[in-house]
């Protein structure tokens, strides 16, 4: 395959960025998208140019590191996969492909295609946990959890924290992330003692980080590589109202 790559280059948070064009030939349709980027980067090194930086680690769609906005879509054209699981066979020969970082105010660009997502850690710090000290737990089978509740909790807990939804959302809302965590702990009895404080604190921190509010456009669900459902957002809203009236 032959493609033309337009990659966002930006030296650091302070500098301005712009697209650079890199023609790429001899691309195999079996390459993953990131392997294609590796090949282009290797060729840049050969020409004594600086390769572009992008976040990645597991390359299996589970760590949430990769964070590329490809042809105007978070993680690219295929539904339900991360950029690292995307293969070149999903693109046409001769296609021009734009690659950009996530764009959202709470995610400042660090360099090229890499953004700062530490806002998520701070949201987690505000309440994304069950307070149980090491050593104080009862026997695992002392807490019974119906099969279907456990399955729903895993659905919510499958969020990889990549940030695609923020990038996809016109309001830069982080509701899908927060709602997935709140849902997981609402569906499980272990989460109940801290139910109210958790939702209030996490939502407050989310607002403080500058994420927008949700207007139910559904863009997040459509772009989520793990297909986390927006029904979690409805649950978050219910939990939020419930906590406020208490």
């Amino acid at each position: 395959m032959k493609i033309t790559l337009k990659v966002w280059r930006q030296k650091n948070a302070q500098s301005e960025g712009k697209f650079e064009t890199y023609p790429a030939h001899d691309i195999s349709p079996d390459m993953s998208f990131l392997e294609m980027l590796d090949v282009v980067n290797e060729r840049l090194i050969e020409k004594n140019e600086e390769p572009f930086a992008f976040d990645h680690d597991c390359r299996e769609g589970i760590c949430g590191s990769c964070s590329l906005y490809i042809n105007g879509r978070a993680h690219g054209p295929k539904k339900g996969v991360t950029a690292c699981q995307l293969h070149m066979r999903s693109f046409d020969d001769g296609e021009t492909i734009h690659v950009e970082p996530w764009r959202a105010k709470p995610f400042p660009v660090i360099k090229d295609l890499i953004v700062d997502r530490t806002a998520f850690d701070r949201i987690m710090e505000s309440g994304g946990f069950v307070s149980v000290k090491t050593g104080s737990a009862p026997d695992g089978n002392a807490i019974l959890i119906p099969h279907d509740d456990a399955e729903m909790a895993i659905d919510a807990a499958s969020c990889i924290g990549c940030g695609a939804w923020v990038a996809a959302c016109k309001n830069a809302s982080a509701m899908l992330f927060v709602s997935a965590k709140v849902s997981q702990f609402t569906l499980l009895p272990q989460g109940h003692p801290e139910r109210e404080t958790r939702v209030l604190d996490m939502v407050a921190q989310m607002d403080k980080e500058g994420f927008g509010s949700c207007t139910n456009t559904g863009a997040c669900e459509a772009e989520c590589p793990k297909e986390i459902s927006i029904s979690n957002i409805a649950r978050l809203n219910r939990e939020f109202i419930r906590a406020n009236v208490r």
Binding site: F129, D139, N141, P146, A150
Partner: peptide, 21 residues
């Protein structure tokens, strides 16, 4: 002890229909 600790943290392990691990 690890399983107990993780269950208490809210790690959603697979369950049987009875609710047991």
């Amino acid at each position: 002890n690890i399983i107990d600790q993780c269950v208490a943290q809210g790690v959603p392990f697979a369950r049987e229909y009875s609710g047991y691990l």
